[in-house]
Amino acid sequence: SDYEVNVNGIHHRFHNISEELIKFIEEALRRGEDLREIIKKVRELLG
């Protein structure tokens, strides 16, 4: 049904976003950045 496609589409989009965010955060932590600064950047990215 349309509803299922829609829900799956939304889930898929969020899954991709969270994968990208996790990579972004892991790389920043590897560079020794402060978690609070990383979260601030993530918030800015998400608008």
Rank of each mutant, 00 (worst) to 15 (best):
E19C: 03
G32F: 06
G47R: 08
I10Y: 01
D2M: 03
E44D: 11
E19V: 15
S1T: 15
Y3G: 00
V5C: 04
L45T: 09
H15M: 08
G9D: 07
I39V: 14
K41S: 13
I17L: 09
L29C: 02
R30Y: 14
H15K: 10
A28S: 11
I17Y: 01
V42Y: 04
I10Q: 15
V42W: 04
V7L: 07
S1G: 09
V5I: 12
E20Y: 07
Y3A: 00
E19T: 08
E4D: 11
F14K: 01
G47Y: 04
L45W: 06
I22C: 01
S18D: 10
K41W: 08
E37W: 10
E26F: 04
S1Q: 13
R36D: 10
I17P: 05
N6M: 04
I38R: 02
K40M: 14
E27P: 00
R30N: 13
R31N: 12
I17N: 01
V5Q: 00
E27M: 07
E37I: 12
N8W: 00
G47I: 14
L21P: 00
K23T: 07
L35F: 05
L21N: 08
N6V: 11
V5A: 03
I25L: 06
K41L: 10
I10L: 07
A28R: 08
V7H: 10
I10E: 15
L46W: 09
V42R: 02
H12V: 12
K41Y: 08
I25F: 05
E20R: 06
I22A: 05
R43S: 14
N8A: 06
R13C: 05
H15S: 10
I22Q: 05
I22N: 01
E26V: 07
K41F: 09
I39H: 04
N6H: 08
V42T: 07
V7G: 05
K40P: 09
L46G: 14
K41C: 04
L35T: 10
S1D: 06
R31E: 06
N8Q: 07
E26Y: 05
D34W: 07
H11V: 11
S1V: 15
N16P: 00
E4I: 06
G47W: 04
F24D: 05
I17G: 02
E37H: 12
F24C: 05
N16I: 01
E26P: 00
R43M: 10
S1N: 11
E33A: 09
V42N: 03
I17M: 11
R43Q: 10
K23G: 08
H12A: 10
S18N: 09
R36A: 12
Y3C: 02
L35S: 06
S18W: 03
K40N: 15
H12R: 00
H11G: 02
I38G: 00
E19N: 11
E20L: 10
K41M: 11
E44K: 09
